[in-house]
Design a protein around this nucleic acid. Structure first.
Length: 588
RNA sequence: CGGGGCGUAGCUUAGCCUGGUAGAGCGCUUGCUUCGGGAGCAAGAGGUCGCGAGUUCGAAUCUCGCCGCCCCGACCA
């Protein structure tokens, strides 16, 4: 048991000016963290306890799935990165330690970086240490501090420059094995977040150019999150917005037959979807074709969408370009023959089709059937444009942004969209790193083969804040049993009274014997202050001892989640407390 | 990095537009009274007004530069 006066829990009445969201305010008000600088926080004694609780739960679930804990350095020789596969991107987010040997009389200054993640380190290690299929599979993990020079740290621990992360790396002999390792981690993550008391959704994530469904993000639903997720409660479909698709075009959809002959009409000065939808033209956005020009690795390409749809840029990653960006009007005009606002892909209207890297059409334009598009002639559009008959298309795909209410691709039920915080990510890497670093092993046929890898992250410090964000009320934090800094708070309203102090100790002991951790508020404070602080720091179970109750021979028991308080005869203390603790632990 | 906002006591802030004595609440210290949901009274301590230059007889206040922090966007556990 811990006495409040013997630890340090500096609570605050008012929120600091630089905190915006509930969890950030509460972390500071409840004395869990203090800020050193932007994105840099000290874990105060009770905050550290929560970090340790969460880490331990994570450790248990990782161990359960056979992962092996180790600890790698935070400081990496720069060569470890500069010779790796992603130096150009990585150097942007890494803190570099310059002058590391200054004044030491060295001929050459060694240069170091602070590790943002450890694929490079672990792969190098495994390459040296594992050479036989007999030593595979292996999954190594660590829990430690990561450093990323975030472009914009925000919301306290939510996006910090320095944060605590669990990262794991699996190595398998076969692709099937790698998938099994991946599934084990998904299982471990699901169990872990459940034990933290978090409601999470695992969503299919954008796995970039690698494709496939071997990347899942673990999301906490929260209005302050910086991700959009698309999901359907009935079918269980869920994906992040970059990846999400919808069943807006039915599987058995029959393309419309041409209606009328293709016809050019004058639209002077009309260069937006909205203007074409207004009088005198009156062409509804979902009857228009939107033609966007992008530059992919230096060559222009076209994206065709419905006028009412938005492009989801991340989906262009499936097209095989390394880099892409919107084209400028100066790049567009020579190729198309018109400026943006009058563009289209009707056969024969593009001035220089040979310059294009492709014309990519979103599936949903089939719903337009016969519509209106630019004539590639400034001030003119074409009507009665039939998708099948008139449009020039080199490849179909899914490029549009999904909207709430559209049919789920699985069940057809309406999709929902919600904001969420990403707290975990599992990723099947394949052989990208093993190839680069030469992580090979000898199989049972004496053949040299590449290890198949996966990587798996959990933001421990972010999880802490996500719990607070998801579990609080107007009075303060409501800790889930398993991650509370202590589970039971014993309030001594008369700390100068020997009988009260003695009873508090007795109650605390009973709770401890039942398996709970106990904090005793023995401060010489007024009752109001103690009750307010109790709600603020949010321990799940509260036991109150006061002179008034002592006379009646009772103490009080109250759950943080409930308004109801129960008076318990002191004689029944042991059994009542034991039962309460057992029930809470069981529910958790 | 683009856009917006802010920097005054440990915390929350007023004052700034219109230059002249730095003010409040919380917290802290001492005393008295209180004592079951952030007590009352009295007395106190606590400030390079983010930093630097400039304008001025005089700058928290006006001008310029820098730094820091917060929010929105692109990126991420």
């Amino acid at each position: 048991m811990k006495y409040w006066s013997q630890t340090f829990i500096p609570t605050l009445k008012e929120s600091p000016a630089d905190a915006e969201i509930a969890s950030h305010k509460l972390l500071i008000r409840a004395g869990l963290v203090r800020k050193l600088g932007g994105g840099l926080y000290t874990y105060m004694p009770s905050g550290l306890r929560v970090v340790q609780k969460i880490s331990q739960l994570c450790r248990e679930e990782m161990d359960r799935e056979g992962a092996i804990e180790l600890a790698m350095p935070f400081v990496h020789p720069v060569e470890n990165w500069s010779e790796g596969p992603r130096w150009p991107a990585a150097r942007e987010i890494m803190y570099r330690v310059d002058h590391a040997g200054a004044g030491k009389g060295r001929s050459k200054e060694p240069e170091f970086v602070l590790g943002p993640t450890h694929e490079e380190v672990i792969t190098t290690l495994v390459k040296h240490e594992i050479t036989s299929y007999r030593d595979l599979p292996k999954n190594f993990y660590q829990i430690g501090t990561k450093f990323r020079n975030e472009i914009r740290p925000r919301f306290g621990l939510m996006r910090a420059r320095e944060f605590i992360m669990k990262d794991a790396y699996s190595f398998d002999a076969t692709d099937e094995g790698a998938i099994e390792s991946y599934n084990k981690m998904k299982r471990a993550y699901t169990a872990f977040f459940l034990r933290c008391g978090l409601k999470i959704i695992a969503v299919e994530a954008d796995s970039g150019v690698m494709g496939g469904s071997y990347s899942h993000e673990f999301m906490v639903l929260a209005p302050v999150g910086d991700n959009d997720i698309v999901y359907c409660d009935e079918s269980g479909y869920s994906a992040n917005r970059q990846k999400a698709t919808s069943g807006i075009v039915p599987r058995d959809f029959n393309d419309a037959a041409p209606a009328g002959t293709l016809e050019e009409f004058a639209t002077p000065g009309t260069v937006t979807i909205a203007a074409l939808a207004a009088v005198p033209y009156g062409v509804a956005p979902d009857k228009q074709f939107k033609t966007l020009v992008y530059m992919g690795d230096g060559k222009p390409f076209l994206i065709v969408l419905r006028g009412c749809d938005d492009l989801e840029e991340a989906k262009l990653g499936t097209l095989g370009f390394q880099l892409w960006r919107p084209a400028t009007p100066a790049e567009i005009e020579p190729v198309m023959g018109a400026m943006p606002g009058s563009l289209g892909t009707v056969k024969g209207t593009i001035r220089n089709p040979g310059a294009l890297a492709g014309i990519f059409a979103d599936q949903a334009i089939r719903l337009v059937g016969n519509g209106t598009t630019g004539a590639n002639k400034d001030g003119f559009h074409l009507r009665n444009v039939n998708v099948v008959r008139d449009l020039q298309i080199t490849q179909w795909g899914d490029f549009r942004t999904v909207r709430a209410g559209e049919p789920d691709p699985k069940s057809g039920r309406p999709l929902k969209i919600a904001r969420a915080i990403e707290v975990g990510h599992v990723f099947k890497l394949g052989t990208k790193y093993s190839e680069k670093f030469g992580a090979v092993f000898t199989d049972d046929q004496k053949q040299s083969r590449l290890m198949v890898m996966g990587c798996y992250g959990i933001g421990i410090s972010r999880t802490l804040q996500a719990v607070v964000e998801q579990s609080n009320d107007a009075d303060g934090i409501i800790w889930p049993w398993n991650v509370a800094p202590w589970q039971v708070l014993v309030i001594n309203l008369d700390p100068t009274d020997a009988a009260a102090s003695e009873l508090c100790q007795k109650l605390a002991l009973a709770a401890e014997q039942a398996g709970a951790e106990v904090l005793i508020d023995d401060r010489d404070e007024r009752p109001g202050v103690k009750f307010k602080d109790a709600d603020l720091i949010g321990l799940p179970l509260r036991l109150t001892v006061g002179g008034r109750g002592l006379k009646e021979g009772i103490f009080e028991i109250k759950w943080r989640t409930s308004k109801d308080m129960r008076k318990v005869p002191i004689a029944e203390a042991g059994s009542v407390i034991a039962q309460a603790v057992r029930e809470a632990a069981c529910r958790a």
